[in-house]
Design a protein around this nucleic acid. Sequence first.
DNA 1: ATATGGTTTGACCAGACGGTCAATACGCCG
DNA 2: CGGCGTATTGACCGTCTGGTCAAACCATAT
Lengths: 214, 214
Amino acid sequence: MAKRDEVERETGEAILDAAHTVFLRRGTAGARMQEVADEAGVNKALLHYYFRSKEGLAEAVFTRAARRLFPPVLAIMGSEAAIEEKVEQIVEHELEILSESPYLPGYLMSEIHHHPERLEQLMSMTMSGVSPAHLLPPIVEKLRRQIDKRVEAGTLRPISPEQFIINLIALCVFPFAARPMLELALGQGGRGFEVLIEERKRTLAAFFLNAMRP
Amino acid sequence: MAKRDEVERETGEAILDAAHTVFLRRGTAGARMQEVADEAGVNKALLHYYFRSKEGLAEAVFTRAARRLFPPVLAIMGSEAAIEEKVEQIVEHELEILSESPYLPGYLMSEIHHHPERLEQLMSMTMSGVSPAHLLPPIVEKLRRQIDKRVEAGTLRPISPEQFIINLIALCVFPFAARPMLELALGQGGRGFEVLIEERKRTLAAFFLNAMRP
DNA sequence: ATATGGTTTGACCAGACGGTCAATACGCCG
DNA sequence: CGGCGTATTGACCGTCTGGTCAAACCATAT
């Protein structure tokens, strides 16, 4: 271990951060190893020393990004909270996190389209002992029972848990994926977009829950 | 004009089709001019003869794709139909067109993120005599009046036309943008996704309109 | 038949890019 | 201090890629 490790961040992580920035800005195929090196302030050869190849680096960036975005959503979905609370928590959390890294949805969608193998690898990876592939079904089933109970009580519209999740995430994520278009359409050079998102933070949960009324 | 022009398609358009296929499959940055040439069955130099550069070809592909996707939506939004009909028409039209070209949303989102200048150019382009930039505001205002009238009559929940459009498009488009993820999560190797979309064709309009109830 | 103009091609080029390697710098330990 | 293993660097390489160009092609007009 070098002395600097205690003061500066681990070099590998600094490279990963730089790669994250560059890969999200240019896209994986459009990103250049030299640009990542410059962004990290290190020699290009060092990227290969730590991550073997561009492919290796891309994989690491994708995995870390996915692990930061998805688990919180799954945690909320699988919690003991009432449906109304879950919706409000998801909306608040998603809109918050996406406001901070607006390129994230576009990057992830592009990656899963052009490199679906990354997703498969991610699903079979172990996180805290279990693979996401085995984590998802119980959450969906739990949500299904929760919905069905409310449907029987006549306080909720029938809907499959899959469609429930997709609709909710769609409403949260889409504006960020289409952000440049909205900024242009709304005018005011991006200010219009911010206003729109602020309004969504206040109204989206109510809109969605209204759709769920019987 | 060559004789073949009467039998075969215009060469330029054949190249554009091939570029569309390849650019959507690989992404603009990941696409190779040679692969486009192979797909079109012509020499690589021909691509430059017709489109000058890769950038020129990318611009042409983007413009054509955007012109095919957006105008129908605007036409429906700006029509005289009642709100309920508009929602049903948009859902049906979008889900239909996206089922046929599933890579389209991902491609467009990636492009507008990495090349926002394409979007600006598109907005200032003339289509049938008018630029999209001048086409949008009247449609939005018309929709606003339509919504306000229904709100006053107490048959609709208050919502801005911008949020209305975004929510509707989000629910239609997002599943396709996230398609590889959903195919993996739903299992059955893509069959699950098709089933999901079929269900959405039947239920999405009702879901959305339910959200709009006062 | 031959000239003409747009179309299509194969060969080629310069630069960019991912990747490698031997040499150097550096912190640590005996 | 001196040796050792890791970290870091600059120089270099082979290949890929976008782009160019002169030559060949081909339907038509004269």
